[in-house]
Nucleic acid binder design. Structure first.
Lengths: 114, 114
DNA sequence: TGTATATATAAGCGAATAGTTATATACTTA
DNA sequence: TAAGTATATAACTATTCGCTTATATATACA
């Protein structure tokens, strides 16, 4: 039953990562929109390294992917990840965080993607 | 949007609790079976206080409920909890842990409930 | 090329976490 | 009531975690 053990382990690791309010909100946002680091800095009023470190943890597990667009690097949920459906079921039960994107747009701090 | 904020916060707290392999497995087991502390001690080969402390955290959040039956206290998932459906969706994606109960029965260390 | 902006990484620190051992409490049964 | 079993709690410890500051790297543009 090695596979079972590994899957419980993996599930626990994923849930632990999602068990942080900042990362959870980031994931919810990135499931709908590609976001860059500076947007998260604005949204969470948190230092840039702190945001980068959260994203790195998510990336290390394959939960998010990045795409550079010039100056910016856009992060989004990696929907090809083996565990995406597991994560998606969780994210779908969370309240929309789109108001945060709207705020960025109103502030003029939204980085548009193209 | 206070409610939204509270719910994200609560979701993160729940996910953090589930983000521990021992607690996650306990929850999966307790979703199907009422279990007592000494069974978990046997299953996880972990000290009794360690198990009690995990259960206390789950109980403090209202995720599990307990029922004393004589000498033993049986713990099970609290299906009346406001967030049960959130948790259930997660548990349903995990591999069955019933083999662990079967092992107890084979060892003669399963405490039957009545 | 030089300066500004965006992001990543490294080192360090305080708080939280998961386990331990020791001890207290509660129930069972002889 | 005394001894045994089940569970809880307290105190302690090592590790992990999330953040900070300082610095490095990468791109844009004048």
């Amino acid at each position: 039953m090695l596979k079972t053990a590994i899957e419980m382990e993996k599930a626990a690791v994923i849930l632990k990562l999602l068990g942080d309010k900042t990362r959870l909100t980031m994931m919810k946002l990135m499931d709908d929109h590609a976001c860059c680091v500076c947007e998260f800095v604005e949204i969470f009023q948190m230092s840039q390294p702190a945001i980068s470190q959260h994203l790195r943890k998510l990336k290390d597990l394959g939960l998010v992917e990045e795409e550079r667009k010039g100056q910016w690097i856009f992060f989004s949920v990696n929907k090809n990840n083996e565990y995406y459906s597991f994560i998606k079921d969780i994210l779908d039960q969370l309240p929309s965080q789109n108001d945060k994107i709207k705020e960025l747009e109103e502030n003029g701090t939204r980085i548009s993607c193209c």
